[in-house]
Design a protein around this nucleic acid. Structure first.
Lengths: 253, 253
DNA sequence: GAGGTATACTTCCATATAGAAGTAAAACCT
DNA sequence: AGGTTTTACTTCTATATGGAAGTATACCTC
């Protein structure tokens, strides 16, 4: 909007509101971010020094530091000790896609239907992934997530079978999938590995998802570990490519 | 490794190294994270209060706060005012896939080959995306990224044609694609929108990428805006599904 | 017992201060 | 002129302190 020809046009600088419910350091970070977004400081250029900001906004040095730390965490600026603080350029490599919109699908009118659950003897690959012996028994489950009665996600997976801990029933409950996403379900899981792939759907997958071949889809593979670093589950979410899309933004605003 | 039966087994607690090159607050965060990872505090459980940590580790209150802030930023714990700090459970929805391994492909033996570049009159969709009038001219480019002389990525896109600014030549340079990722190229871009899709490759895409149909692939759509919030480019990266995979981890360690 | 009050906790915010450590350029000496 | 030292900046760490604000519980009053 504001036409700035190139000079350091003194921008309208909102002041810190001492009575705001927002902390001062957040306010200051917002101000700076907004100034950068308005073009007052271009990528590569240097921000006023911290001492300068202290004088300008009448706040303590530590408060300024916190504000700038916020901006560095948000990938807006970089700081190099002894030189100054500089505005970062947008970089595609910093983009990150999160699964929040996938998670959103569960909140709606989602129903999980158990297609199959049975014991299987682990083949070579499964045994390796679950760190058990070939031939040992594991639980194989297949589930279908329906949204508005339409198939949305197909989930297959192997679970460790531990006779001492009857986690079987709880793992088969319909709420477990949702719990995986929001973290309400599994206090015994310590970490997980995820990988995502674009692939052609198999006949079985297409049939269950009710799409015609050939079709492209997502394959979200996941493996979870307990606090002894032993695998507890391994599986995939499969989804038709048209039914799901990842979105993200980079840069300011 | 360590067998803990359930009691609060007093963990081996490393002390703060005052002469370390690592800051105290980072050390403290590492210690706490490691203790959580070892099972000393389970998801949902409460961490020792800040005052307690001050006494235990002989550091100032502000230093403890910084350490805990680090952990909340890293999704390890949550804090609620007046109650305490609690260990977070792993949640799938918090997973984020970044494009760093995509970026890594550029560093190697990557060559960008310009397939085509010409003026086109904008159709309805292009005009809408670039916020120009239908029939106005834009630049249409097609590029192919070769890695070890094998086609890896196919890129198509539209660029705003601005006769006053001869950005044309620079945009066509081979280094621009790489610059997009690491941020070395574009101080005039303020923000971008990205979306990712799994789809069947078209005949043209398959031919250029030298794969046989039917094939599934990634479609990474991107749109960039300048500091006046006007679009400057719109395009897609297309990649065969077998040649690229997204990885990420959640939880600890 | 019900409801309000006091109290003892918790996380959070902002301040002032004192110094460490890095950078760059000016000042100085040989 | 060339190399070294000093100086003046920068970010960064860690400290101590004082208070605000939220939460849960014990306790007293009615």
């Amino acid at each position: 909007m504001s036409e700035l020809k190139g000079g350091a046009a003194a921008p309208v600088r909102p002041y810190i509101d001492r009575d705001s419910d927002q902390p001062v350091y957040v306010q200051l970070a917002d101000i700076l971010r907004q100034q950068i977004s308005a073009g007052a400081f271009r990528p590569g250029e240097q921000l006023p020094s911290e001492a300068m900001l202290v004088r300008t906004y009448q706040v303590s040095p530590m408060t300024v530091r916190r504000a700038i730390n916020l901006l560095t965490d948000q990938n807006v600026v970089t700081t190099v000790q002894g030189r100054g603080t500089f505005v970062k350029a947008v970089q595609l490599g910093a983009a990150a896609f999160d699964l929040s919109d996938l998670q959103a699908m569960f909140s709606d009118d989602a129903v999980v239907k158990l297609v199959e659950a049975r014991f299987v003897a682990a083949d070579e690959r499964t045994a390796r992934k679950l760190q058990i012996e070939v031939g040992e028994y594991a639980i194989y489950i297949r589930r279908l997530l329906l949204i508005h009665n339409e198939p949305a996600f197909y989930h297959r997976g192997y679970l460790i079978y531990d006779p001492t801990r009857p986690i079987v029933e709880s793992e088969l409950e319909v709420t477990v999938l949702k719990g995986l996403f929001d973290g309400t379900g599994s206090p015994l899981i310590k970490r997980g590995e995820l990988s995502m792939e674009a692939a052609l759907l198999t006949e079985e997958e297409a049939a269950i998802l009710q799409v015609s071949l050939p079709a492209a889809g997502w394959l979200l593979e996941h493996r979870f570990f307990d606090f002894d670093d032993k695998p507890v589950s391994w599986g995939w979410f499969v989804c038709h490519g048209d039914r799901f899309r990842l979105h993200t933004k980079i840069g300011l605003e």
